[in-house]
Nucleic acid binder design. Sequence first.
DNA 1: CCGAATCCTACGCGATACTG
DNA 2: CAGTATCGCGTAGGATTCGG
Lengths: 131, 131
Amino acid sequence: MEATEHDKRKCPSHLSTGECNKQLLPVKDALDILSGKWKLQIILSLTFGKKRFRQIQREIPGLTPKMLSKELKELEINELAVRHVYDTLPVTIEYELTPYGRTLKPLIAELHKWGTKHRKRIIAGSRKKSG
Amino acid sequence: MEATEHDKRKCPSHLSTGECNKQLLPVKDALDILSGKWKLQIILSLTFGKKRFRQIQREIPGLTPKMLSKELKELEINELAVRHVYDTLPVTIEYELTPYGRTLKPLIAELHKWGTKHRKRIIAGSRKKSG
DNA sequence: CCGAATCCTACGCGATACTG
DNA sequence: CAGTATCGCGTAGGATTCGG
């Protein structure tokens, strides 16, 4: 036990404030990419190939153009997806996961693995949200 | 109570409806465990050992007792943490991660890994939320 | 110290309609 | 088709207060 530890109220006692945020923020970033009502489904939809706007929307019932538009923009900002504009008539637009976007796959797989075990353990009969 | 209406969802065309939700729901469950403003910090705080209510609260600035109480309950419901009541005077209460709760570590580590790379790639200079 | 109860705000998201 | 604009609701989360 160290004697220098008294005023670090922001983090677990053995971590400096800076250390703590360094641990925390990246995890939050990753979480932020995947959370929300539609992000995951949109990403998964795109893992199966290029898709057009309406095509994605049709595949995900309940998804409104407003939300789809918003989510696709965030995917672009984060370089997880690209927007292709083909100069046809009328113009054709397709969205595609970037190679970088595909690096999410192992992560999603991990979440799926843990989530599956968790379902077996807890959720199956008694849970409130995630419906 | 009745919440099983998700079976009518459509999915990427090559997946059956059932297949799709089987892929999706567990991931959402896992995400749900970790998302929210405080869950992660509380879990991390508890990875370093048993903690008392106020102790956790002091370690996480901005966290109100209401939220802490709520989050701890969810952790209990999901068997990720346990509440110990010691019959001292006044009563002493401690929270502790369960072994099961510690199975989140690799998952969080994965999120941290991906998130760190993502920070380097994108976020560092330009982002809107979570930072 | 460990919470519960109450009130309030901000924001994600849905519904609907409209534009190019 | 590929989006935008406007309105409104539900709920996560904040501030404050009270009780054991």
